[in-house]
Design a protein around this nucleic acid. Structure first.
Length: 413
DNA sequence: TCTGGGGTCCTAGGACCC
DNA sequence: TCTGGGGTCCTAGGACCC
């Protein structure tokens, strides 16, 4: 028998979790039943839709659009703020529950996973029964609904879970592709984003079926490697395995500022606050980095970045901050900035790096300082120690949102 | 568009080396 | 060198995902 793969996807995850939480805490109103979104704070320029209820979707509200636009489409729209701690907990509770049913699990994002039923004992292999039980158990025990997509590979299972919502199970086996997947818009295909879809449409390719029937070499000519990927996906071809999370490749933080930054001093201070957080995470992961990058977005939404590779890996906050300042000064031309970010990549584990560390110019004293600050923040909270330079700056001493400790997705399976 | 924040992967071009 | 070609490394930017 061939493989059976599930893709399990929480319906409107952030909104469902908020709704379930409020019901459990005595709220009478179920946010899922009214036009409602989870949205960032408009006053600090983070006002976009992060998740929407199905009634909100009926007004044409889309994830990622501004709250301004969303409220225009639906004046009585309710907006609830995000609560990332809650999402982390809800997510963990769900994955723990799934894992007790199906041990072979690949967590794909905070609200999605793949599971391979081939590892289940023969008796439990009635996949439809397993899916129904799992879905209903999540709903009754945890208070939110999921869609489950079922097929022979991850791509098809994922496409299937995206069919009609909520609280549904769909199959998409190879013999069903033509009927269930090919009529869909090209842009519904996993990995066909906005840019690709526009280009496809200009070529007269409108549906997933059109992609499937286009010559692979033609797509390759237009889209390079990506063209072959979408051709394979449109034909339901995917040989990737359920696998463990791979080692993290890079760590970064960025922040949209409540006001435009127009002077270098403030910009440096923002970079410091970003370094504090990013470097702390780097040390928590017991990693050091060699490539450091600073990114900027101007008030008119032009983005650019500047990076540098250094010889000796480091995890020192002060060292990385010095580099970030240098990179910023080298590239910033004085335009008003709405966003600043830093990112550390080319990571290596620090266990066997003691030797080169002593060559790297970052003293042992500095290292012990980072360690001490990390420990105090872990014990007494993130803001128990902050730099005095933030005191009257109007800036947060530690910036950048990190939403719990789940592993992020890769753009491939 | 009153347009977030965290990631991964790919490509192109230039520098440098043989 | 007013020289060719191929490989590797580095940087910038873009596309995609949730």
């Amino acid at each position: 028998m061939s493989k059976i793969i599930f893709h399990i996807d929480v319906n409107s995850a952030f909104l469902s979790w908020e709704a379930a939480y409020r019901l459990q805490h005595g709220d009478a109103q179920d946010l899922r039943a009214i036009p409602c979104v989870i949205g960032g704070d408009s006053a600090s320029r983070r006002g976009i839709v992060l998740a929407k209820s199905i009634p909100a979707k009926a007004f044409g509200i889309k994830t990622g659009e501004s709250l301004f636009a969303a409220t225009k489409k639906c004046p009585m729209l309710k907006v609830a703020p995000p609560n990332y701690d809650l999402y982390t907990k809800a997510s963990k509770a769900m994955f723990d529950m799934i894992e007790t049913c199906i041990p072979s699990l690949q967590i794909y994002s905070i609200d999605e996973c793949f599971a391979d039923l081939s590892t289940l004992p023969e008796i439990e292999k009635n996949f439809m029964e397993v899916a129904i039980n799992l879905k209903n158990r999540i709903r009754t025990k945890l208070g939110f609904t999921v869609n489950i997509g079922i097929s022979q590979n991850k791509l098809l299972a994922k496409m299937a879970s995206d069919f009609k919502k909520p609280d549904r199970i769909h199959t998409l086996f190879p013999e069903e592709i033509e009927e269930k997947m090919w009529p869909l818009d090209a842009g519904d295909l996993f990995m066909a984003g906005r840019a690709t879809t526009q280009k496809l449409n200009r070529m007269g390719i409108m549906t997933i079926g059109d992609i499937a029937k286009t010559d692979k070499d033609i797509l390759r000519g237009y889209f390079k490697k990506h063209g072959e990927t979408i051709w394979r996906y449109a034909n339901g071809l995917d040989i990737s395995e359920i696998d463990k999370p791979s080692a993290i490749k890079g760590i970064g933080n960025s922040t949209t500022l409540p006001f435009d930054v127009t002077d270098r001093e403030t910009a440096h201070r923002v970079l410091l606050s970003l370094c504090e957080k990013t470097c702390m995470r780097l040390r928590q992961e017991k990693k050091m980095g060699r490539v450091f990058s600073v990114s900027m977005k101007t008030s008119d939404f032009f983005s650019y970045s500047h990076q540098q590779k250094i010889f000796h890996p480091t995890d020192s906050t002060n060292g990385i901050y010095a580099l970030a300042k240098k990179l910023f000064d080298q590239s910033w031309q004085g335009e008003p900035l709405r966003l600043l970010g830093i990112r550390i990549s080319d990571l290596c584990s620090c266990e066997n790096l003691q030797l080169s560390f002593f060559d790297s110019g970052f003293s042992d004293k500095e290292r012990r300082l980072d360690e001490a600050v990390d420990q105090i923040r872990e014990k007494h909270g993130l803001y128990s120690i902050t730099r005095s330079s933030f005191l009257e700056s109007g800036l947060k001493p530690i910036a950048g949102g990190v939403h719990g400790d789940y592993k992020m997705v890769s753009s491939k399976f």
